[in-house]
């Protein structure tokens, strides 16, 4: 019996931690959605672009930490460039126009990244083992991957930092103001350009972290840009506008898909297979019916 229970907890923790990996990707979406009300189709490509750039710089013989800094710089420059070339001419256009622009941006980034750094699959070693952590195994008797724990730690630091930034700083307040009403923000003298550049830079930072963690797990290659698809149900569950929602949504999706995979498929005797692949989307669909703004999303305020 205890081994059954242990197994349950193992699956649960494994799921929760892999959920955090989804959250990392979802975070980038949330940042940009908050500030510009636009679903950034290019977030997945940004993850790919960041990882490709990092690996590329490493291959040029630059040591780890300088490479990380350099890559961060590239992402910042990219953010400023996107603001100049894509966003600025589209101020006050309907959100759909901006959304279309991000689709174009996504193709551009995929092509650019692979054009510069090549299309072959590359390994990325962060020096952290994807093996069961021995300390936890001895203490609790559960197998939990050290790598998963490390990514959870990264996510926690990122989220903490972002939450502080949004709620406690002057720029954070301006960001939230812009998210609510572009025009009014302009009218009180908040420069939209700066705000957007800052938000895209932050999304670039998140993409970099996600790219490194996912890249070292899957290998750095084109399919990395598809992890964005896994972030979708997370966003629908957690709400497009909430940083906390991205995390909680990720935890729920991660845990439920792993549990469903293990328990429902054994229960049905393997008749229903590969549940992990579609379960999150079904959950998201059900959620849309009940609570379209997500768990932590901003309520649509309607005065009557």
């Amino acid at each position: 019996m205890t081994s059954d229970l242990n197994f349950f907890f193992e699956v649960l923790f494994g799921g929760l931690l892999s959920g955090i990996m989804y959250s990392l990707v979802a975070l980038g979406f949330v940042l940009i959605y908050k500030a510009s009300g636009v679903f950034n189709f290019a977030q997945g490509s940004m993850v790919l672009f960041a990882a490709l750039t990092f690996v590329g710089i490493l291959e040029m013989g630059v040591p780890f930490w300088p490479a990380l800094l350099l890559c961060l710089l590239v992402m910042m420059l990219l953010a400023v460039g996107i603001e100049r070339i894509v966003l600025r001419p589209l101020v006050n256009q309907p959100p759909i126009a901006l959304f279309m622009a991000t689709i174009g941006l996504s193709y551009l980034l995929e092509g650019l990244g692979q054009g510069i750094w090549g299309t072959q699959v590359r390994a990325l070693d962060l020096g952290i083992e994807d093996l069961p952590n021995e300390m936890i195994q001895e203490a609790l008797g559960i197998q939990v991957s050290t790598f998963d724990l490390f990514s959870a730690g990264c996510a926690a630091v990122l989220v903490g930092g972002l939450a502080l930034f949004f709620n406690k700083t002057r720029v954070g307040l301006a960001l939230r103001a812009v998210a609510d009403d572009h025009q009014a923000a302009l009218a009180v003298g908040i420069p939209l350009q700066h705000v957007w550049a800052i938000v895209w830079a932050a999304a670039g930072l998140v993409a970099l972290v996600a790219g490194l963690l996912w890249g070292s797990r899957l290998g750095v290659q084109f399919s990395l840009s598809l992890v964005a698809l896994k972030a979708l149900p997370v966003l629908i569950l957690g709400g497009f506008t909430s940083v906390a929602g991205a995390i909680v949504g990720g935890l729920i999706i991660g845990a439920s898909e792993k549990l469903a995979e293990v328990y429902i498929s054994t229960f049905t005797g393997g008749a229903v297979a590969a549940i992990e692949n579609w379960f999150p989307y079904m959950l998201a669909l059900l959620f849309l019916l009940v609570r379209p703004q997500g768990l932590f999303g901003e309520k649509i305020i309607e005065r009557v």
């Binding site: 307040l173 939230r176 103001a177 998210a179 609510d180 009218a187 009180v188 003298g189 901003e298 305020i301």
Partner: peptide, 30 residues
């Protein structure tokens, strides 16, 4: 706004999801 000319737009345009006090503070952004 820095020069001292501010517009209050038609239809009020408050930041709906910010508190009243946060709304006021955004006015001091510049």
């Amino acid at each position: 706004v820095k020069l001292g000319v501010v517009q209050v737009m038609e239809g009020r345009h408050c930041f709906e999801h910010l508190t009243v006090e946060e709304n006021l503070l955004t006015g001091a952004h510049t």
